[in-house]
Amino acid sequence: MELDRKEMGRRISKRRKVLGIKQAVLAEKIGVNGNHLSSVETGKVTPSLELFVKICDELGVTPDYLLEGAMHSNNVPQSIVDHLRLCSEEDVDLAAEIVKLLADRNESNLG
C-alpha cells in the first residue's frame, strides 16, 4: 500500500472542519505550528508517527480512517459512529438489532 499524503491530508482537514476545530487550534493541541499542520493537510509533508497519533487522538478517528478512509477495520464510516454517539443507549441497541437483521438477510442471500 502506498501512502496518499494528499488524500490523508484531505481527511484530516475534513474531519477537523466537521468537528468545528480551527486549524490553528488543532495545531496548538498537537504541538506544531499552523504552517506545519497546513503542509500536512495539503499533503506536502508526511507527519511523524508521533504527530500522526496525536492527530488521530484529537480528531477522534482511527489511523485506518486517515490512511484509507475506513473508520474501523470493518469499514464503518465515521459519520455512522458520530451519529450513534449522539443516541441513547436504547437507540444504540435498536440500531444494533437492525444491523444484525441486515447481516442475517445478506448472509442468507449468500447461501
Score class of each variant (00 low, 15 high):
Leu59Ile: 13
Arg16Asn: 06
Leu19Ser: 14
Lys22Gln: 13
Leu3Arg: 08
Lys17Leu: 06
Asp93Gln: 06
Arg85Met: 01
Val99Glu: 07
Leu19Ile: 09
Ser48Leu: 06
Ala70Phe: 06
Val61Pro: 00
Ile21Asp: 13
Glu97Ile: 04
Ile80Cys: 01
Asn35Ser: 13
Asp93Leu: 01
Asp57Phe: 08
Asn74Asp: 14
Gly34Asp: 06
Cys56Met: 11
Pro77Thr: 03
Ile55Val: 13
Thr46Leu: 08
Asn106Cys: 11
Ile98Met: 07
Ser39Pro: 02
Asp93Thr: 05
Ile55Gly: 05
Asn75Met: 04
Ser38Val: 00
Val25Ile: 03
Gly43Thr: 05
Gly31Pro: 05
Gln78Thr: 02
Val92His: 00
Ser79Ile: 02
Ser48Lys: 13
Leu101His: 12
Leu94Trp: 07
Ala24Gln: 08
Leu94Arg: 08
Ile21Ser: 14
Leu37Trp: 15
Leu37Val: 09
Arg105Gly: 10
Cys87Ala: 08
Val61Lys: 14
Glu90Ala: 15
Gly43Pro: 15
Ser88Thr: 11
Asn109Thr: 08
Glu68Asp: 02
Gly69Asn: 11
Asp82Gly: 01
Ala27Cys: 10
Arg11Gln: 13
Val25Asn: 11
Asn33Ser: 08
Val76Gln: 03
Ser108Trp: 03
Met1His: 12
Ser108Asp: 12
Leu67Ser: 08
Lys22Glu: 12
Met8Pro: 11
Met1Glu: 10
Thr62Met: 05
Glu50Pro: 00
Lys29Gly: 03
Glu28Asn: 11
Val61His: 12
Leu19Gln: 15
Asp91Leu: 06
Val99Met: 04
Thr42Val: 04
Leu86Thr: 10
Ser48Arg: 15
Leu49Ser: 14
Val45Glu: 09
Glu7His: 02
Pro77Arg: 07
Thr46Val: 11
Val99Trp: 09
Lys54Trp: 07
Arg85Cys: 00
Asp104Cys: 02
Asn75Val: 00
Ser88Gly: 10
Asp82Ala: 03
Ser79Val: 09
Asp57Ala: 13
Leu49Gly: 15
